[in-house]
Computed example of a mutant assay.
Amino acid sequence: MDLFTHQVDPSKNWLPMDGVVQYFGAIMPKEEADQYYQTLLENIPWEQDVVHMFGKRIVTKRKVAWYGDKPFDYTYSNSTKKALPWTPALQKLKDIAETLTNETYNSCLLNLYHSGEEGMGWHTDNEKELKEQGAIASFSFGADRKFVFKHKTTKEKVELFLDHGSLLVMKGATQTHWLHRLPLTKKVLVPRINLTFRTIISV
């Protein structure tokens, strides 16, 4: 099936309460998504992520990169990164995200998962540098992966499958009330690239 012809309702809120998550599905033809995937895979200076947890320094298999309008500092898991200037591909994707979501963004965290054996545990994107209740637009390229939300109080879960070339946006009180994760799976053998456009508050 051609994912680009699979219609979804971008106005639908996938969360039953306490936040807004909208999924646009694949927003470009597969050939265009393939081009972005290859460009990002080959031209981004991917680096292994370093996090500090429980007094230990952990180097992840997952690789990351950080871009922005300015050389913003961004700290998460007790590790600080300085933003690189936009590439042409990232600038185009930023423009697309801003048009479709009717929001503005000034930075982007990129993640490279080499296979389904790499993922992300439960967390919220609520670091002090981020705009409070600001929208986060998430592009997916490469492998289709399950993405799960869990309410912090009720523990209710919402699952989506994020397609190649797709766009998802989290906004409102989502980060306050919901955790999200990318579960591990042995069924996925190819990489996935995730771009999360967000807004850093200048100080």
Rank of each mutant, 00 (worst) to 15 (best):
Q133L: 11
Y36R: 01
N126Q: 10
I58R: 12
T124Y: 02
K128W: 03
F139A: 04
Y76N: 09
T39Y: 10
L90I: 10
Y113L: 05
P88I: 04
V158H: 00
T104M: 07
W46E: 07
G55S: 08
T39W: 11
C108N: 01
Y74W: 05
N111V: 05
H52V: 11
G121T: 05
I136F: 04
L130C: 02
G55P: 03
F54L: 12
E156P: 04
E117Q: 14
V148Q: 13
L162Y: 01
A135M: 02
D49A: 15
G116D: 03
P88V: 08
F147R: 02
L160P: 05
N126I: 11
T39L: 14
N78L: 12
I96K: 14
S138Y: 02
A65I: 08
V51C: 09
L40K: 05
E118Y: 05
L168D: 00
A135Q: 01
S166G: 06
T154A: 04
E129W: 00
F141S: 01
L41S: 11
T124K: 07
G68R: 00
K171P: 01
P45N: 10
H164V: 08
K131N: 04
E103M: 10
Q133R: 14
E98G: 01
E32S: 12
Q91C: 08
R57E: 15
K92Q: 15
I136C: 00
E132F: 11
N78H: 15
V158D: 05
L90A: 09
V59R: 09
T80I: 10
L109G: 02
H52T: 11
W66H: 11
W66I: 09
V51Y: 11
H52S: 08
T124V: 14
K63A: 13
Y74C: 02
D144P: 06
C108P: 07
K82M: 15
G172L: 06
L100Y: 04
K152F: 08
N111S: 11
Y76P: 05
F72C: 10
A89R: 03
A83V: 04
T75C: 12
S138P: 04
K150N: 06
N78E: 14
N78I: 07
F147P: 05
D49L: 13
A83S: 06
V50Y: 06
M120N: 08
K171S: 11
L167D: 00
I96H: 03
E42G: 06
M120H: 06
G116L: 01
N78A: 15
T104I: 07
G55W: 10
N106Y: 07
Y105A: 06
R145Y: 03
T101N: 06
A83P: 04
T154W: 07
Y76C: 06
G165N: 05
K128N: 12
D34F: 02
L168Y: 00
F147K: 00
K157Q: 15
L41M: 12
K61I: 13
N43H: 15
